[in-house]
Design a binder for these strands. Structure first.
Lengths: 145, 145
DNA sequence: CGATACTTGACCAGAGTAGTAAGGTTTCCC
DNA sequence: GGGAAACCTTACTACTCTGGTCAAGTATCG
């Protein structure tokens, strides 16, 4: 399935912030980029979206940076995706407006929604804390090889 | 979630073919378009993809048309989607190639795959026969109002 | 004041999407 | 055999989304 760059970068940045949440100081953009190998100019916009969504908070000025707005256990992948993905509510599919009225189309969309729901539920069950823990776990297993 | 036009049209066409599977004659493009309100010029391409995927077979020449290659119970939404969606295996995400090597990125992708898997399983559980039955069911419930 | 660092808006190239156009090929039927 | 019906194929267009860059603005610390 498609994991687009925005969602990937947002998640990586959030994981990095979660990992450094213990030290009180805000984390600079540069720090995140260096740790996660993400283009800085691009990450700026993504962090801005995360801020608008209330997932991170920012501190301006010298020695500024970003911080998670809430504990890592309460921020899920689903939330991150919703924040950066174009929501894509497809306000008016234009030409396919007529097709949308058919009974078959309605049935189909119900089915589709069930699938989307199943996916969202998995994503809601994975928090930043989980991801940090999993990453640490694989790191340790690698150490013992 | 995003249900794109190709997948929607492919599914609607397949449902129509499933519904008319009892009469032996192949179903013409025009017939499908009229029934499902889908642009003919576009549906041609989609049916071609379905044919390449082995989901439908075609009969050329006058009195030709399309037919399901297999019984409607054995064709699932997942299969339809795979047939028309750009597979998008993203062979090399180019610039994000470096990011792909990080441990966090691997962890994240595992999580994402679990979500994708859950969605695919739902889609695999819905056949054309199911969709036809559901559409008929809602039609009957509407009749009794 | 000046350096650091977040904020904002404009911009751009490439890919994918939805759809159209037109000509070629196959088959049926008179 | 000659239409005509209907599928097959390639090409093209308009538009949007995506990934990413640039540059100027603003806030804060020292």
């Amino acid at each position: 399935m498609k994991l687009n760059a925005r969602t990937e970068y947002a998640s990586l940045a959030a994981v990095e912030l979660a990992r450094r949440a213990s030290d009180g100081a805000p984390v600079g953009l540069r720090t995140i980029c260096d740790a996660q190998r993400v283009p800085a100019r691009f990450l700026v916009h993504i962090l801005l979206e995360l801020k608008r969504a209330g997932i991170v908070v920012s501190v301006r000025g010298a020695a500024g940076g970003y911080r998670l707005a809430r504990p890592p256990e309460s921020i899920t992948l689903q939330e991150l995706r919703a924040a950066v993905e174009g929501s894509s509510e497809t306000p008016t599919p234009l030409t396919s407006a007529l097709a949308g009225t058919s009974r078959d189309a309605a049935t189909l969309r119900d089915a589709w929604q069930a699938a989307a729901r199943a996916q969202a539920e998995i994503l809601e069950g994975i928090s930043l804390a989980d991801l940090v823990a999993r990453s640490r776990a694989t790191a340790e297993s690698m150490y013992y090889i």
